[in-house]
């Protein structure tokens, strides 16, 4: 159960959980703890279930990523496998990378190696789009999402947003620009609320098909043992 993997996360669900086999978008501005939240959730989930997980990092090397997580008190389990694209990108130089195929082959490799590989994270979709040379990649995301579901993985795709305006669709053109929002089975938003004298980080489940969840923003904090979620921010 993912809802028990972070202290306080179950408070965001009235009943149900993040459904197995779903594709979840994790959105938010820089510094909102998107990466830390997912990594912490994976590490704790592994400790509870003994399942294997795969974390694909397009933005950081494995070493840098682990250093950052350790500084937040989050330790990696041996059952959590990290794939960083850095070597491939630097060695391939200017050659075109079919990032979708590379990613699917990578997932298939780990699924074949570890029978109980059940969850996957891609950090981040922004980098995924920027590396890809496919002009219609965004339009083709439907197929990518479908194949992730076909692999029977619970997938978390991190998407960095520039401003809160990005979260709100005001016209049908936005759906074409950001198809991942309606293709995803769930959207978890992390962000920052600035008041007069303090700044709070929050987490909110904006959408979760198959689960009855709260729409409230809850405060999220980092302690010496990682992340925990408190009550409503208001």
């Amino acid at each position: 159960m993912f809802r028990n993997s972070i202290t306080g996360l179950d408070g965001l669900f009235k009943d149900g959980d993040i459904p197995k086999g779903s594709v979840i978008l994790v959105t938010g501005i820089e510094g909102a703890l998107k990466t830390s939240f997912i990594f912490n959730m994976f590490s704790n989930h592994i400790a509870d279930t003994g399942e294997h997980g795969l974390y694909a990092s397009l933005e950081e090397t494995k070493e840098s990523h682990l250093r950052n997580m350790e500084s937040l008190g989050i330790r990696k389990s041996d059952l959590l496998h990290i794939f960083d694209y850095e070597d491939m990108r630097s060695e391939s130089k200017n050659e075109e990378l079919d990032i979708v195929k590379v990613t699917e082959d990578m997932i298939d490799f780990y699924r074949e190696k570890y029978d109980n590989l059940t969850f996957f994270a891609l950090d981040s979709l922004n980098a995924f789009y920027s590396i890809s040379t496919g002009v219609n990649l965004r339009k083709n995301m439907y197929h990518f999402f479908t194949r992730l579901r076909d692999k029977d993985l619970t997938s978390f795709l991190i998407l960095e947003t520039c401003s809160p305006d990005k979260y709100v669709f005001v016209s049908s053109a936005d759906h074409v620009e950001h198809p991942e929002y309606f293709l995803a089975d769930g959207i978890i938003e992390l962000g920052v609320i600035e008041a007069k004298e303090n700044v709070k980080r929050y987490i909110q489940i904006r959408k979760m098909r198959g689960a009855n969840h709260s729409m409230e923003k809850h405060q999220i904090m980092v302690g010496k043992d990682g992340i925990s979620i408190l009550g409503s921010v208001y």
């Binding site: 794939f83 990378l97 990578m106």
Partner: peptide, 14 residues
């Protein structure tokens, strides 16, 4: 595929 070969190398390294 790079996805297969690099995954294998990372596992062998681990």
């Amino acid at each position: 595929s790079q996805g297969t070969v690099y995954s294998l190398l990372y596992c062998l390294k681990d």
